[in-house]
Design a protein around this nucleic acid. Sequence first.
RNA 1: UGGGGGAUCGUUCAACGGUAGGACAACGGACUCUGACUCCGUGAAUCGUGGUUCGAAUCCACGUCCCUCAGCCA
Length: 562
Amino acid sequence: MEQTDRSAPSDFIRDIIDEDLRIHRYQRRIATRFPPEPNGYLHIGHAKSVCLNFGIAAQYGGICNLRFDDTDPSGENMEYVDSIMRDVKWLGFDWEDRLYYASDYYDRLYEYALALIKMGKAYVCDLNADEIREYRGTLTTPGKDSPYRNRSVEENLKLFERMRAGEFAEETHVLRAKIDMASPNMTLRDPIMYRIKKETHYRTGDKWCIYPMYDFAHCLSDSIEGITHSICTLEFENNRPLYDWFLNESKIENPPRQIEFARLNLTFTVLSKRKLIDLVEKGIVSGWDDPQMPTLAGMRRRGFTPEAIRRFCERIGVAKNDSIIDVDLLENLVREDLNEKAPRVMAVLHPLRVVIDNYPEDLVEEFDCPYHPQKPEMGSRKVPFSKVLYIEQDDFAVNPPKKFLRLAPDREVRLRYGYFIRCTDVVKDANTGQVIEVHCTYDPETRSGFAPDGRKVGATIHWVSAAHAVVAEARLYDRLFRVANPLEGDLDYLDHLNPQSLEVIHLAQVEPSLAVAVPGRLFQFERIGYFCVDAFDSKAGSPVFNRTVTLRDSWAKLADKK
RNA sequence: UGGGGGAUCGUUCAACGGUAGGACAACGGACUCUGACUCCGUGAAUCGUGGUUCGAAUCCACGUCCCUCAGCCA
């Protein structure tokens, strides 16, 4: 009996593995692989696969390889390879010395193809693309045999060699497996194994002008690496018989087995590579690492932590149901993680001037404020206090609605880590009627945060000293799409873009300790949300903060209902 | 009108012939120098119809709905 601890995840894939282990299949060895094609950046959907493959390997004392599935030179390049490696590492996984490329197997794959030709299991077909499609038939009608299907082995060998030698133009010849043109499974209707592409490959250069197709290359690459469980997404379910066919005809012993699971879908976003490329190329986002993107690079820049993402991948489980996960779950996990890790600071996004009338003109006090009230070990910093402050516009109301606990005329609140203040007067813009300044008095007896007479306040609000505040840029990110499933309905998904997915605040006022915030560092702006110092645009003295996620706001929820 | 998959609280995963359970969301409350965090509590589901069985989400039959396959993409 295998030892699996109770906290370890369990799912239908692990059940299959448990059974394989039990019957001593693969000599009780477990090997998986994460096989991205280097033609785009990794997104949260890939993270699910990364966590699954590396997670299973770790759980069963096996190995997980990183293999670039680079069998189509168009669109693949080294930038993507680098970004993928960076992201997998960032997520917290290690392929050690097992970095592989399908393109490293081109010679061996060619030999496998030769062997199939010699067995009469593969042939060179001269039909062009349109003709091949025509001959393939449809979902409900069988295809018909290619007129080139019964060429002699010698002729096939000669032709294939000439394909390789570059004697033919693209689309004039392909190598096909000879299976069954009448198969109800379309993938078995003499699938293409090699096509001619006179393109320079980012790794093999011009050595090859024929490239293997996925179905042929993938299963054999798995077998070359000794993979035992080849985990992929549901849309490859149809291809499994073909996966098995190539391995069987190639006389592979102990062939790896393909297992399919449902890919991740997330509400309020899209996760297909094509659509993400679209967003990048149409300039809807600033790049693959735009914090609005569900790419790992984007999420990293936004402030999501690898721990939260791994936790998420664990929580969502693995199954074969098509499903769409609520992004709330992800955001909640991020809050959970950041609540532990993020130092608390004060920042005012929408400043409202507050003048403490009875506070001395030139006095500046310094309050010692803990970085995390529940974690004294995180230390503290000094925050200056003076006569003129900024508070959040939302924290003041001329006519406070029911249940509003914050500052209002003649009401008293506590300034976080500071005094109690009472609103005595309101200055409005003569034209607009907008509140532009609030006057208060403070109670010197409340320096400790409590009143000697024991009176209570309804709320504690955050603030910054106007004279000491640092001006910062805050980028408030929201969901990229305004509907849960942008792919649903008749409209193009781009018609569902959320025009408010980014609000930039240029003049946020933040406490002075943030002037030199280190790029990538995470903070909780008290009572607002979690923010990440932008890794690229932030400079000393003029920091830029990306909002990772808001804090839960039960007041906003209450107010919304009315 | 072919083949391959799938259907369980609003969402998601579990229950593997024996009390339908967890998480997120929702709702109510407690606590609070963050309307945060935390804690407590409440409501909420087996696609339909038959059958087998002492007993069915689970097995069988027939339906229904959803996904997927007709790239020289992966």
